[in-house]
Each structure stands twice: as C-alpha cells, then as structure tokens.
Amino acid sequence: MATVYFPDHLLAYCENQRQVEVHATTYRELVRLLDKRFPGIGRVLSERISVAIDGQICHEPFLEGIGINSEVHFLHPIAAG
C-alpha cells in the first residue's frame, strides 16, 4: 500500500487525516480511489498541483506510476526564474 501524506491546505478535503494508505498503481488511479473515500478531493488533486512520489517531484503526474511502498506528497507547483 502506498502512503499518501496530506499537507495542511488539503486537510479540509480529507476529513483532517494527515496520512492514508491507498493501493494504486498510477497517480490517476490513486486520485480516483481517494475521491471515492473523500468525495471532492479528486478535483483538487487534478488541478494545478505537483506531487512528489518517493521524493521525485512531478509537475503533471496524471500517469505517473505508484509503487507498492511509495510515499506520495503534494505540493504547490513551482516554476519561474
């Protein structure tokens, strides 16, 4: 099961749970499963968000693979400079 960590600004969407376990193989699937558990969070996790899977930051994660023991963190997208 992958471990998903929610930052503060997402707690309102996930019943204040800091972390949850999800069995998913891609980011898309992970979002689908989370949205079932926490209706509404799917939209938030699909728009303007970056995700770090095992420490690697992806800008538009959509199809990104999730490992069995992956750690998933969310963060605001960074660009610029």
Binding site: Y5, P7, A52, G55, E71, H73, F74, L75
Partner: peptide, 8 residues
C-alpha cells in the same frame, strides 16, 4: 522538507 516531500 517543510514544503512536503522527503529529500533524496
């Protein structure tokens, strides 16, 4: 990291 993920 303070901004979320664990550092590699």
């Amino acid at each position: 990291a303070a901004y979320g993920p664990k550092f590699n």
